[in-house]
Simulated scan of single mutants.
Amino acid sequence: MSGAIGYYVHHHGQGHRQRAMAIAAHAPNRFTLIGTGLADLPEPFRRIDLADDRLTKDNTFEGFDGGAERPDALHYAPIAHDGVRARNLAMVEWIAREKPAAIVVDVSVETAMLARLCATPTIYVRLAGHRNDPAHLDAFRGARALLSPFHADLDDPEMADWILAKTRYAPGLTGPGAAPRPCDRVVLVVVGAGGSVIDGERLAAAARSTPDLRWRVIGSVKPAPVVPDNLKMLGWVSDADREIAQAGVVIGAAGDGVLGAVAAAARPFVCLPEPRPYGEQVAKGRRLRALDAAVVLDKWPEAADWPEVLERARRLDRQRIYALHDSQGTEKAAAFLLEVAGR
């Protein structure tokens, strides 16, 4: 085997891509990022841009292939899909050519299985939630190690001991948290790329209920017909970590990227977990509530409730959420992957 390390990047949302880049930046000559939509990666990242495997023309991904005869060891294996055939061929050719020391899989049980069938060790990224189905358990068993991109305190207390024994926790896989001085009058709403229930009408109503505050929204949101003066829709931004660090209160889902940036900046957090496969965000929201590290809500509040919700967030002990961060997270994660690959 060579010293090369593959890093498979799932294309749903932005979290997989962002943490892959953060880790690979510590050893760009060792890591090759592999996935769909990677053609625009900047230098010095090596990449293999795979054919798309999605079934819909609008590039949404629900994770279901509709197959009735799918083996229990697989999650997504559509039949007669040229994109699936092309991407698997590209990965097999790269493995045969480079003979990598390992492939990090973030995330896909099919890619983990393919790597193993090609005589290549895997390191599987284990996300939160109830991932005790046969396919996930096979991917966990077959991996040399598991990497979880969150703090151990956010894990399921009932996780099986053998899974915990293989897991290395890696909080802090986000940009630096320190930056500008926070502004107490700014409420920042973070909308991720993986889907959200937040829309412009709800945001406009919330902003009207707190006219003394400035609401800023980053991410893609359907706009409201009438936008109040204290609501600014910024769309996608390149400095999301900075926006989070300078907000008085942050509102967002329980994705690893948003949560990591909020923890790094120790900002008061209103968390609204979004529906995700295997209850990933709901599970993290439950742990945040138990740790009293965030105000966790089951649904978007009525407009009149926002002043009280935001005040509850401001009263939080911010050290509780900061304790879920590791300022050396990316360095440690990269060192761990290199060590495992070198065994």
Rank of each mutant, 00 (worst) to 15 (best):
M1K: 02
S2K: 06
I5Q: 08
G6H: 07
H11R: 11
H12L: 13
H16A: 03
R17S: 05
A20C: 07
I23C: 07
P28T: 11
N29M: 06
L38I: 07
L38W: 01
F45C: 06
L50W: 05
L55E: 12
D72L: 09
A73W: 12
Y76A: 10
Y76I: 07
P78M: 10
I79G: 08
A80W: 10
D82M: 06
V84M: 05
R85T: 13
L89R: 13
A90T: 02
M91L: 01
V92S: 08
A96V: 03
K99C: 09
P100H: 02
V104I: 11
L114P: 08
Y124G: 00
A128Q: 12
D133S: 09
A135N: 05
L137C: 05
G142N: 00
R144Q: 13
H151L: 03
A152C: 04
A152H: 12
D155H: 14
M159N: 12
I163N: 06
A165Q: 12
Y169C: 11
A170I: 07
P171T: 10
G175H: 11
P176A: 11
P176I: 07
R181I: 11
D184C: 11
R185C: 11
V186D: 15
A193R: 15
A204R: 08
A207M: 05
P228M: 02
L234P: 04
W236Y: 13
Q246I: 02
G248A: 01
V250C: 08
I251M: 11
A263Y: 08
R267A: 04
R267N: 03
P268E: 10
P273F: 00
P273H: 04
P275H: 15
P277E: 01
V282S: 15
R289C: 12
A290I: 10
L291R: 09
V296T: 05
W300L: 03
W300F: 02
V309R: 00
E311N: 09
D317N: 13
D317K: 12
Q319T: 15
Q319N: 15
D326P: 11
T330K: 14
E331K: 14
A334Y: 06
A335D: 15
L338Y: 06
G342Y: 04
R343P: 10
